[in-house]
Design a protein around this nucleic acid. Sequence first.
DNA 1: CAGAATTCCTAGCAGTGCTAGGATCTGGAT
DNA 2: ATCCAGATCCTAGCACTGCTAGGAATTCTG
Lengths: 193, 193
Amino acid sequence: MATGTRRERERAQREELIVRAARELAEAEGWDAVTTRRLAAEIEYSQPVLYSHFKGKNAIMTAVAAQGFEELVTELRAARTAVRGGPEALAAVAAAYTDFARERPALYDAMFTHAVEVEFATPDGPAYLREGFGELLQAVEPLAGDDDPGVLTETFWASLHGLATLERSGRLPMSLHDERLRLLLGRFTRPKG
Amino acid sequence: MATGTRRERERAQREELIVRAARELAEAEGWDAVTTRRLAAEIEYSQPVLYSHFKGKNAIMTAVAAQGFEELVTELRAARTAVRGGPEALAAVAAAYTDFARERPALYDAMFTHAVEVEFATPDGPAYLREGFGELLQAVEPLAGDDDPGVLTETFWASLHGLATLERSGRLPMSLHDERLRLLLGRFTRPKG
DNA sequence: CAGAATTCCTAGCAGTGCTAGGATCTGGAT
DNA sequence: ATCCAGATCCTAGCACTGCTAGGAATTCTG
């Protein structure tokens, strides 16, 4: 029995190794550079070993994305709790979100453009999704007014996501990012006239 | 010389055939299904013929995207000019934009997620980009207030893009689309308090 | 009608994700 | 210590991708 647990531990370690290697490779050279062959070479095992841990390359990306969600949640929480609340909280959370997307583009891609296997939009989805949305919700809710806070949070999230993706792909110049974020926040914090 | 012009005409026709086939295949089965072999079979020529017209698959996608931009411009213009102006114009343009993304997902992908070769964010970019942005701008401008109309338009565009992509990928349920759009428009038309 | 030039296809390259099959190594029982 | 069952892992290969070199076939020109 003792050997069994050791093997399990080693397997878990290697699985972690795979995810870390995939993430580092993606962050260094983009997801296109993450091929099963290169990944196998990186961890010094053969390709089929990858498939004994994950169903396929997509599952590996999903595992990387899961790490990303965890980290995004902690960053959003840190940003939100660092300020008093109200408009400042929304600004802090928004800046944290777009910073995350800019600084970890490969991670962000895995989370929000690839890896559709993550179950969004369902009440029983992964905990990190509920928590992440919860962080946004807590920042948006005080400013919702008559609007449904949940739907308004979705809308605000979509705006941040749009900014992040368009700026990252070069379709909007990054130089005006702060200004765009300022205008967006202005519109969402503006009280009903 | 007469034969020369005939050949040119035939070449242009075949090029159009390639773009149309790529577009139809993408809209029917998604861009993953658009391989050079299938495309060649569809137009009843061999693969290398594709490369005598386009530098590669990406160039074909760019050509499809160009068609998309032209169509998007006309739809935005139609939506904007159909109403009087002010908030209604913004609502009409926003609905036209998200409708376009939902009804022509493959086209939208080629325009805004793939095909980075299109020169966004430069003054001398393609005409359809300037025109398309101009349509949004004309709808946003009357509501800009003290804000820079151009930057505000970029921000509004990003919000629409975020909604379109998150809803399309299943990360936001499509059922609440109208409500989200309503809230977004409410925030962007709300006068400064 | 022969020669030149264009057009086009066959065949192939290097790469992808993924998998079947057998070799190798490990752990436990005799 | 030995032998066998089972887990572990790798080699080799499949079907596919985008793309290209080289030669065959067709077309136009003198």
